[in-house]
Design a protein around this nucleic acid. Structure first.
Length: 201
DNA sequence: CACCAGGTTGACC
DNA sequence: GGTCAACATGGT
């Protein structure tokens, strides 16, 4: 696993994820980027910012139709508007500070109980908003691992990364970001024959 | 016109 | 347990 990281880092350089000014902005982005290009998410976040909505209380209270129109460009906008308000209510009731004090697994279960927050979104929030060591698995991670002969679904892959890597937040962030970047650039059409990641598992 | 994007849910078997 | 359509817009 560390070999993959070193190789990707050498190839692509540091990614410095997640691009956001505040932890709550990470939360909003994590919901909006579900099955959606980041470019469109960034636009929506700027719209929300203009309307002073990048804050849990304001976002949870804003009129649904207004929220929908602001995030329309990210697709699935009705679902996402509902999801954003559910998550916002949760973050309005639980500030970042109190959330940081919870054990990771307990926090993860709470996030997963919110409608619209699945594993990847929950783990992205834990890693990038709360800076806790939880490895985020996404579609690219699964694809890349498959190419490398590492099979498994979300939980198995996550466990493997967390067990085989040092439990380091920066490392988890970078490796996840690097795999997304690599996946976007090189894994688009099953061109596994050109894969640069000929590393030992 | 077809296909994809930093997923999640609920229905059905 | 697993599979699958639905969700919707914007870009190639």
């Amino acid at each position: 696993m560390m070999d993959i990281y070193n190789k990707l880092l050498e190839l692509l350089g540091e990614q410095k994820w997640w691009p956001a000014k505040t932890p709550f902005e990470v939360v909003v982005g994590a919901v909006l980027t579900q099955r959606t290009k980041w470019e469109n998410v960034a636009k929506a976040i700027r719209e929300l910012e203009k309307n002073d909505l990048l804050e849990p209380k304001m976002l949870s209270k804003v009129e649904r139709s207004k929220l929908e129109s602001l995030i329309k460009g990210t697709g699935f906008y009705k679902q996402k508007a509902e999801r954003l308000q559910i998550v916002s209510r949760y973050f309005a009731e639980n500030d970042m500070r109190s959330l940081s004090e919870k054990p990771i697994e307990a926090l993860r279960r709470e996030l997963l109980s919110l409608k619209g927050i699945g594993k990847e979104t929950a783990d992205s929030i834990i890693l990038y908003a709360l800076n806790k060591p939880k490895f985020v698995v996404d579609a690219y991670t699964v694809r890349i691992c498959k190419c490398l002969g590492i099979s498994g679904e979300y939980d198995q892959l996550q466990e493997r990364f967390e067990n085989e890597l040092p439990l380091n937040v920066m490392l988890f962030k970078e490796l996840h970001a690097l795999m997304v970047k690599y996946g976007k650039e090189f894994c688009n059409q099953n061109r596994c024959d050109e894969c640069v990641l000929d590393v030992k598992k």
